[in-house]
Amino acid sequence: MNDETRLCTFFLDQQMYGIDVRSVQEVIRYQEMTEVPLAPESVVGLINLRGQIVTAIDLRKRLKLPQRGGDALPMNVVIHGEDGAISLLVDQIGDVQSILPENYESPPDTMSSSSRELIRGTYKLKDRLLLVLNTEKTTRFSDGSD
């Protein structure tokens, strides 16, 4: 990682996560989804994004976090995937943060392995920790972890 990286941040279960801002196509409000039977559990549906059909992944389910409570609607962070756009459902969207490599640390060894491989590392911000998501692994389901 060279010098400064800009991360698009969002929140899941109070925890701040970030992904490289360059991989983000857009952030949109909650969209109505069409569920896909037989799909991996964390694939929660398909969204019509201006004529393009985008697969939505619920990050809470993907990271095995507790279910979103109440009627709070998630936000869509649409990223450029390997083939076309993929939407990540998050609780809330944060700022774009510039981070420096010296604050970086790899995820703690004690983290559960399934979630651990989806996290690239941790950045220590002043008041909190920022987890960087591995978007490639998050949007791939070949390992059958779901």
Binding site: A39, P40, G51, I53, D83, I86
Partner: peptide
């Protein structure tokens, strides 16, 4: 007819999606 993303291509009962 619109193709489905890679994530869902392996589900044999769907040929694609439409709007």
């Amino acid at each position: 007819v619109k193709p489905m993303g890679k994530l869902l291509k392996h589900i044999p009962v769907f040929a694609g999606a439409t709007i």
